[in-house]
C-alpha cells in the first residue's frame, strides 16, 4: 500500500513537470506576447528593455529552468496585469472566495443529492423518482453557466429577492453557492439511486429484512454502507466539475476568485499568473485523483483484505 501511494506521488510529480514544460513552451512559442504593438504602442527600444527586464529575450530552455527554480522557491513572479504585487500575493487574495463558495456548494449539494437519490431508489417510479431523474439529467447535461443564468434571471431579475453579484455581503453568496451545489446534487442523486438499487436487490438485504430488523436500520446502516463504496469514485468528476465551473460562476457573479483570474490571465496573456494558476490546478486535480483512488482502495473490502 505504501509503495502504491509512493508510486502515485512520483507519477504526480512527473506529471507536474511535464505539464509545466508543455505549457511553458507553448505559451512562449505562440506569437503575440503581452507587449504586442496593438495592445501597447511601444518603441522597439523600450520594448526590448521591458523584454529584457522580464527575461523574455533569453532562450526558452533558460527561461524555463530559471522559472522552475523560482517556483521551487515559491516565487511565481509578478503578474503583468497588476505589477504592484507578486503572483503569490494575488493568489492568496483570490483563493478564499473560491474555496469558500465551492466548498459550501459541495457541502450543501452532497447530502441533498444523496438523500434525493435514496428517496428516488426507495420510491421507484413515483413522483420523487421522476423529480430526481429530471434534476440529475438537467444538472449533469446542462452547463453550469446556463443554470447560473437561470438562477440570476429568476431570483435576481424577476423576483428581485437576491443580489446577483458582489462579494462583501454573505447574502450575495447564495446564488453562486446554489449554482455550485447543483453539480454534486445532480451527480450524487443519479449515482446514489443506481448504486442503492443495486444493493437493495442483493439477497443479503432480503435476509436482513426477513430477520425482522427495522426497515430504517437496514436502509441506513447496511444498504447505505454498501452503496457508499462505489460512490467514492464520483468525487473526482465532481471536483473537476466544480473547479471548471468556478471559471464561469465567478465571472458571472463577479466573485474575485481564482476562476475569474484564470479568465483574465488568459485574455491578457499574463504569463506568470497563467502559469501559476495552471500549475496550481494540475496539483489540485492530481491530488484529488490520488485521494479518490486511495479512499476507494481503503473502503473497498475486496482490495482491503489482501
Amino acid at each position: 500500500m505504501f509503495t502504491y501511494v509512493l508510486k502515485r506521488l512520483v507519477s504526480l510529480v512527473v506529471t507536474f513537470f511535464v505539464v509545466s514544460m508543455i505549457i511553458f513552451s507553448l505559451m512562449h512559442s505562440i506569437p503575440g506576447g503581452p507587449f504586442d504593438e496593438d495592445k501597447m504602442p511601444l518603441s522597439p527600444a523600450a520594448k526590448a528593455k521591458i523584454m529584457a527586464q522580464y527575461g523574455l529575450d533569453k532562450p526558452l530552455a533558460v527561461q524555463y529552468v530559471r522559472y522552475m527554480e523560482s517556483v521551487l522557491r515559491f516565487d511565481f513572479g509578478i503578474p503583468y496585469q497588476s505589477p504592484g504585487e507578486t503572483v503569490v500575493a494575488l493568489l492568496s487574495r483570490a483563493w478564499p472566495p473560491s474555496f469558500l463558495l465551492g466548498g459550501l456548494g459541495l457541502l450543501i449539494g452532497t447530502p441533498l443529492g444523496i438523500l434525493l437519490g435514496i428517496a428516488a431508489a426507495l420510491r421507484r417510479n413515483r413522483p420523487v423518482d421522476y423529480i430526481a431523474s429530471a434534476v440529475s439529467t438537467l444538472g449533469i447535461t446542462v452547463p453550469i453557466y446556463v443554470i447560473s443564468l437561470m438562477l440570476m434571471l429568476v431570483f435576481g431579475v424577476w423576483l428581485k429577492w437576491l443580489p446577483t453579484n458582489g462579494w462583501g455581503n454573505p447574502v450575495s453568496w447564495i446564488l453562486p453557492v446554489a449554482a455550485y451545489a447543483i453539480v454534486p446534487l445532480a451527480t450524487f442523486a443519479r449515482y446514489t439511486r443506481s448504486s442503492f438499487l443495486d444493493v437493495l436487490n442483493k439477497p443479503f438485504v432480503t435476509v436482513l429484512m426477513a430477520k425482522g430488523l427495522p426497515y430504517r436500520t437496514v436502509i441506513f446502516k447496511h444498504v447505505l454502507k454498501n452503496a457508499a463504496i462505489p460512490m467514492v469514485t464520483i468525487f473526482f468528476p465532481i471536483f473537476i466539475g466544480i473547479t471548471t465551473g468556478s471559471i464561469f460562476v465567478e465571472q458571472m457573479f463577479r466573485v474575485p476568485g481564482l476562476g475569474s483570474y484564470f479568465v483574465t490571465s488568459i485574455s491578457k496573456r499574463d504569463y506568470p499568473l497563467e502559469m501559476a494558476l495552471i500549475l496550481l490546478l494540475t496539483l489540485m486535480v492530481g491530488i484529488a485523483y490520488i485521494v479518490t483512488d486511495i479512499a476507494y482502495y481503503y473502503l473497498n473490502p475486496r482490495t482491503r483484505i489482501k
Binding site: 473537476i240 471548471t244 471559471i247 488568459i266 490546478l281 486535480v285
Partner: peptide
C-alpha cells in the same frame, strides 16, 4: 485531465 480547462487553454 479536465477537458474544458485544456480546451480553454
Amino acid at each position: 485531465i479536465p477537458p474544458l480547462l485544456v480546451a480553454i487553454l
